[in-house]
Design a protein around this nucleic acid. Structure first.
Length: 817
RNA sequence: GCCGCGGUGGCGGAAUUGGCAGACGCGCAUGGCUUAGGACCAUGUCCCUUUGGGAUGGGAGUUCAACUCUCCCCCGCGGCACCA
């Protein structure tokens, strides 16, 4: 039997014709929603991309054969910067290039034999989709969860737009790697911080998510518990609130520090003759790029405000400073400084000659301030802390917090590292934010009947730092939906992560023109049963999607709180030790492989190369191995066709027994591998062993045709999620009329796997010395007796009786001498 | 610095969860077939000083038995990071 490009084509057309992958969502019985993260449309896919879809397809095909009603849709995350940047360079409109790329990509996915329900295709840059992205925005806006504010934001000077916190990687833009600077700008935010506690708590519900993703989200949300303390500013009624997790050190405060961005600074220094100097310092810090400012090794710098504050626990007056090491975004932007027990404060105090006071003593060696070269941050005994002296500092944290709450000098408080999600972008290729600015009514959401706010196509979209839509008069000028007066449209567009934070809801009813999704169907089909994608989305996309899902839940549009029941994150394919990328020139193009070997060879190798959740090194020779294996398996089909009927009377002979056992054992193992954590690599190696056994039995003994046929049939049934074209071909050659997907996944019986005899290892002092074939009914004593007579064992016994004998059933016997 | 993941032949990787380390595949070697190459078939393939000894990053420990458990250390990858 031959396998070639025509085979691929034949079956791809067959699936299309038979509507094999089109799912009726009205029937949700035995539903299984298998979702692969929708891609950004790119023209040049490499095998690294292919891995994603091949894994998803293997899962979807396997589940179909298990009798589940599988929904497997695909779409495109089609807004975004690359198309816009390419357009600026090459002059092709982003819409044109994006739609072209989509066509190319769909075609590629088809040639790989990936089965999707293309009637449910979702393209985020088309008005019928982004209408509902805008609608979701207006839902959030109405609840006060979308708001505009002037804030210090991350600005990428190369992309000429703002970035969400999540898009800043070590102080650089995640897309272009330029250093991000801070700017004060009026921007739109989603109030994801309001959901921080739930986003954190509900991680517990995600039992089928990888641990590492959950940890990353936990860290990103970054909960910390501590105490807010009000320090009174001397000579004013004003209070300055600081946040600390180390309330045990509160008696050791010797100064207080504000972030340079702190809003009260101007007021506090207005009478200070040194004010210009202070402003100069603040300016200097703020124009520093974020990465540099955040680096630990950066010298701590600060300036005295001329003001003093009072520590409420002991009435001590301490100086108030401004310093580069305090962040406005975290806590309250004000920090109580305890140089004796915080390394940053210690360095700062040393540099500016500020007091240092020990309040936690080292139990093993008494601390003297003048001898200290670093802050003492270990556990210790409270000193100089009034009634708390003598306590361990760990328990003092709770005691002091209780006391301060009672005295009303402080209040327990929880802080999150998570920031609100900055969703506005000053770029063209995105969904317009559906808001109208009216001089009398203020910010007004565009009413649902006026959605979508269409993105005009005829726009000069050079990045200038301002939104390109500002230059489009017919877009900009409008009337206020409330008062009908002259008004102006919002010209910023939305972060593409807004588009992708709800697309999984759209697939179940993609053609809906009156609502974002059909509530009934969504509630039946979601949460997604299996979500598959790259680990690079561990924080951004997955956190945003969880957030939007919770918002929609609260607004009663859906009745589930988490969008993805199970998550699988596959590893990258690397070549020469590096991630595949065009710029590195180490990509491997699937087209070449498809042309020369066929889709199934590529699919098989990709799945065989290693555990799917781990990175894997691409080796061209590996393809050859997959090719050889499939040829070898196909030759069995030819052999079966010309097989002479064997006259065999009575029960099975040993060759037949071995083959039958291997058939059942393989089904068992492959099923287990697929039911577990998608261990395709070991599943495939099991099938290889079955093929090897088939050859062995046929070559060395006589095997009845029906048993041989059962072996061949099983091989291709088990292979079919991985190599669907070949499997369909064989399935049809064996006389089956319907798609192999309509057949049941094979069953096994333990009865056939059992053996009467088994070979066990015989070890002496834990070291294997010999083998022994035993009958499964033998008692431990019998086996022991046999083992002790073995020559190799005798050698080690040297005439003495064994000290101890341990028998592990059907595995080994260990003799201790 | 903190958190997480990982380290097994020449290579990708297995190991029933404490029970025969190296399944399966690549590569390599020898032979067969072939005008030749490829493909295919067969056999072999951890190392050594071989009645034996040594090997799962290094070192210790628990155990009859450790890739697997415990402790210390080294290396690689990923996330977070002046978070008070």
């Amino acid at each position: 039997m031959e396998y070639n490009k025509e085979t691929d084509k034949k079956w791809q057309e067959f699936w299309l014709r038979e509507r094999t992958f089109n799912t009726d969502t009205n029937d949700s019985k035995n539903k299984y929603y298998c979702l692969v993260m929708f891609p950004y449309p790119s023209a040049a896919l490499h095998v690294g991309h292919a891995r994603n879809y091949v894994i998803g397809d293997a899962v979807s095909r396997y589940k179909r054969m298990k009798g589940l009603n599988v929904l497997s849709p695909m779409g495109f995350d089609a807004f975004g910067l690359p198309a816009e940047n390419a357009a600026i360079k090459g002059g092709i409109h982003p819409k044109t290039s994006t739609l072209n790329n989509i066509a190319t990509m769909k075609n590629q996915l088809n040639t790989w034999g990936i089965g999707y329900d293309w009637e449910r295709e979702v393209i985020s840059c088309l008005p019928e989709y982004y209408k509902w992205t805008q609608w979701i925005f207006t839902r959030l806006f109405e609840r006060g969860l979308a708001y505009k504010k002037k804030a210090a934001v991350n600005w990428c000077p190369s992309c000429m737009t703002v970035l969400a916190n999540e898009q800043v990687i070590s102080g650089a833009c995640e897309r272009c790697d330029s250093k991000v600077i801070e700017k004060d700008l009026e921007q739109w935010f989603f109030k994801i911080t309001a959901y921080a506690p739930r986003l954190l708590e509900d991680i517990e519900l995600l039992t089928k998510w990888p641990e590492r993703v959950k940890i990353m989200q936990t860290n990103w949300i970054g909960k910390s518990t501590g105490v807010n303390i009000d320090f009174k500013v001397e000579g004013e009624e004003k209070m300055l609130t600081c946040y600390t997790t180390r309330v045990d050190t509160v008696f050791g405060v010797t100064y207080m520090v504000l972030a340079p961005e702190h809003p009260m600074i101007s007021e506090l220094i207005k009478d200070n003759p040194e004010a210009p100097k202070i402003y100069k310092f603040i300016e200097k810090v703020r124009t520093q790029d974020k990465n540099d400012r955040a680096a630990v090794q950066v010298e701590k710098e600060g300036v005295f405000t001329g003001r003093y504050v009072t520590n409420p626990v002991n009435g001590k007056k301490v100086p108030l400073w401004i310093a580069n090491y305090v962040l406005m975004e975290y806590g309250t932007g004000a920090v109580m400084a305890v140089p004796a027990h915080d390394q940053r404060d210690f360095e700062f105090a040393k540099k500016y000659g500020l007091a240092i006071e020990v309040v936690i003593d080292n139990p093993t060696q008494h601390l003297e301030v003048f001898q200290m070269t670093a802050a003492y941050i270990e556990a210790g005994i409270m000193v100089n802390s009034a009634q708390f002296n003598g306590l361990g500092n760990r328990e003092a944290i709770e005691n002091i917090a209780d006391w301060m709450e009672k005295e009303k000098t402080g209040k327990r408080s929880v802080h999150f590292r998570l920031r609100d999600w900055l969703i506005s972008r000053q770029r063209y290729w995105g969904a317009p934010i559906p808001v109208i600015h009216c001089n009398t009514c203020g910010c007004v959401a565009v009413p649902e009947k006026d959605l979508p706010v269409m993105l005009p196509e005829n726009v000069a979209f050079k990045p200038t730092g301002q939104s390109p839509l500002l230059d489009c008069a017919e877009f900009l000028h409008t009337t206020c939906p409330k008062c009908g007066g002259k008004a102006r449209r919002e010209t910023d567009t939305m972060d593409t992560f807004v588009d992708s934070s709800w697309y999984f809801l759209r697939y179940v009813s993609p053609k809906e023109s009156n609502q974002a999704f059909d509530k009934n169907v969504v509630n039946k089909w979601l949460p997604v049963d299996q979500y598959i994608g790259g680990v690079e989305h561990a924080i951004l996309h997955l956190l945003y999607s969880r957030f939007i899902t919770k918002v929609l839940y609260d607004l009663k549009y859906i009745d589930f709180q988490e969008p993805f029941a199970a998550l699988f994150t596959q590893g990258m394919i690397v070549k020469n030790g590096a991630k595949m990328s065009k710029s590195k020139g180490n990509t491997v193009a699937p087209d070449y492989i498809i042309d020369n070997y066929g889709a199934d060879v590529m699919r098989l190798y990709i799945l065989f190369m290693g555990p799917p959740e781990k990175d894997a090194e691409w080796q061209d020779e590996g393809l050859l191995g997959a090719w050889r294996f499939l040829q070898r398996a196909l030759r069995l089909v030819d052999m079966l066709k010309d097989y002479r009927e064997v006259k065999e009377e009575g029960g099975l002979n040993n060759y037949e027994k071995d083959l039958v056992r291997k058939i059942h054992f393989s089904i068992k193992e492959v099923t287990q591998d697929l039911e577990g954590d998608f261990q395709f690599n070991t599943a495939i190696s099991r099938i290889m062993e079955l093929v090897n056994q088939a050859y062995k039995s046929i070559n060395e003994g006589t095997v009845r045709k029906e048993i041989f046929q059962q072996a061949v049939d099983t091989i291709f049934l088990l292979l079919s999620p991985f190599t669907p074209h070949i499997s369909e071909e064989v399935n049809s050659a064996l006389g089956f009329k319907e798609s192999i997907l309509k057949r049941n996944w094979p069953c096994f019986s333990e009865e056939y796997i059992k053996t009467e005899t088994v070979e066990i290892a015989v070890s002496v002092n834990g070291k294997v010395r010999d083998k022994l074939t035993i009958h499964v009914n033998w008692s431990k004593e019998e086996i022991e007796k046999k083992a002790l007579t073995l020559e190799k064992v005798q050698h080690f016994l040297a005439g003495k009786p064994p000290k101890k004998v341990i028998y592990i059933e059907k595995r080994m016997i260990n003799i201790v001498v």
